[in-house]
Amino acid sequence: MFKAKLESAKEFKKVVDTMATLLDEICLQVNEEGVRAAAMDPSHVALLSLNIPRIAFEDYQADEHEIGIELEAFKKIMNRAKAKDKLILELDEERNRLNVIFENQGKRKFSLSLLDLSGATTKVPELEYHNVITIKGDALKEALKDADLISDHVIMRASPYEFKIEAKGDLNDFTAEFSSEDDAIISIEGEEEVKSAFNLEYLLDMVKGVSKGDIVKLYLGNDMPLKMEYSLAGCELMFLLAPRIEE
């Protein structure tokens, strides 16, 4: 069995929105410890991993199951979440469906038909990073939106005291600079200078669910994939994004 209740359907909508911008489908692996999932986008440039420990749920009961979900349909349903709705996710094993229930003044129940994605699980690799930037989510998001006016990709640079996002266009350019003294920065760790270039469309998709008050962790290397981590209402999201490399 699987039945889980979340305090805020609206908060979970942000998680589903973010997953749906990068992926077409995902296989949720549920067990008594919580819900996990990991998948790569169709072009194999980005990887998303989701971990919702059982403590993030108001109620939680689960045996081991793999629940394959078509994300566009799930996103459309989650768009119907209202401010005070709680969310119940419940596996109907007989009908092979996931019930998505909004609980408020009554119950509104959608039954989402499941996909067979067994065996399609993605292993999350361990990469080693020396530079870690912990930054306020809205500052990062605004800098990426600024850069989007200038180019379709950015260069991220990190040194022991500074983090920069640069975009170069044919005529114009943009730089966002954050020093460890700035309000936007929680911490900058690392002993060397590193830089990598990344596609902006992917970066903007990855920060889609981020809003004011969220804290984002960035792991950066030289021409290495970017690792990004943040939490939304107890749901831990991790992304890897392959870099652009000079030819």
């Binding site: 440039v45 990887l47 690799p125 990469l127 990709h153 270039a197 994939p225 652009r244 490399i245």
Partner: peptide, 13 residues
């Protein structure tokens, strides 16, 4: 000129 690479260039997927 830079080109987009895939995650599989960095680890086995």
């Amino acid at each position: 000129k830079s080109k987009q690479v895939k995650l599989s260039d960095f680890f086995k997927v």
